[in-house]
Amino acid sequence: MEPLLEMKDIYQAYGKNLVIRNLFLTLKKGQIGCLLGPSGCGKTSVLRTIAGFEKILSGEIMLHGKSVSRNGLSVPPEKRRIGMVFQDYALFPHLTVFDNVAFGLKTDNKARKLTLVSELLEKMDLDRISERYPHELSGGQQQRVALARSLAPGPDLLLMDEPFSNLDATLRESLSLSVRKILKESGATALMVTHNQSEAFAMADEIGVMYEGKIIQWDSAYNLYHRPNSLIVADFVGDGVLLPAVINSNGKVETALGTLDGETVGPVPGGKTAKILIRPEDAVHEDDSPQKAQVVDKAFRGASILYTLLLPGGEKVLSLVPSHHKHPIGSHIGIRAEVTDLVLF
């Protein structure tokens, strides 16, 4: 399928500060993409260049195969058919919910407008509050109004800047699922930006981890987690530790957790020693395992407990254990390595 959005080798700066560098990104129609990264990594700037609020230094942005931003050309935001949900929603305080949502509809046909907006409001469960003003709404309602408003004109691409960051955790979860559902139902293509990985995992088909203005890895959630292409990604996505590893003559990887079977990901480092990424679920707890480790810390997570374990060699690993396995700090428990993807650096 023809890509809807293509960004090729984008550079952008505020003054002398390069905020985006060497950035490539492709989004297919109907796909929900997400840029994940710590604050200040330039992810919001990417959205703003796509929307046309910021000019780029070099590179090219294409929508439907047509160039919208490149050196010497910048299609104004209003001509790009791109919707945007702002982090603070930017609802118009002087307009009702209905008028906010209807704002982007260019039709003069009142009846048509009414139908369109009403349908949308109903779908978003906003129909009962359509005559209220933004300040009279709860955070979740405001968020849905902002989404409805940007969906109303039927944009080709929807950009969402930290859309759930102003909401509490429970609301965030339920909303992100329902927003994904709405987007998928309407066949929308969307690109969102967040620093919260669970949000990204819940919403996106593909996720790009951004760091210092670059996309380090553009991949599925699974791959980002289990097959990070770099230390940066490994570090930013999920928990885990790096253990020293030695690659033996058989090509097997030996660590403090023993010799590991599994598929190595990426190029094996040239030297014989390396570091291997061990996720908490890679160190499985088994009471009768011969390998023992000492509990030095624990964090209750509901379904599971995250144990920090000290190996006899002095290395630490994390282990995610079903939460009925209660072990006091200081006690020794049995563990077994079960690593499918061997990520070596």
């Binding site: 929307a51 104004p76 209003e78 058919r81 791109i82 002087h94 704002f103 260019k106 940007s150 004109p153």
Partner: peptide
């Protein structure tokens, strides 16, 4: 500025955004 951007993202020009959003909001 934000009012303008919001209006632009909804397909209005800057001029429209000024008169339809920024100005009424500053009323």
């Amino acid at each position: 500025k934000r009012a303008l951007e919001a209006a632009q993202s909804l397909g209005h020009t800057k001029t429209e955004g000024f008169f339809k959003v920024a100005l009424p909001m500053a009323r």
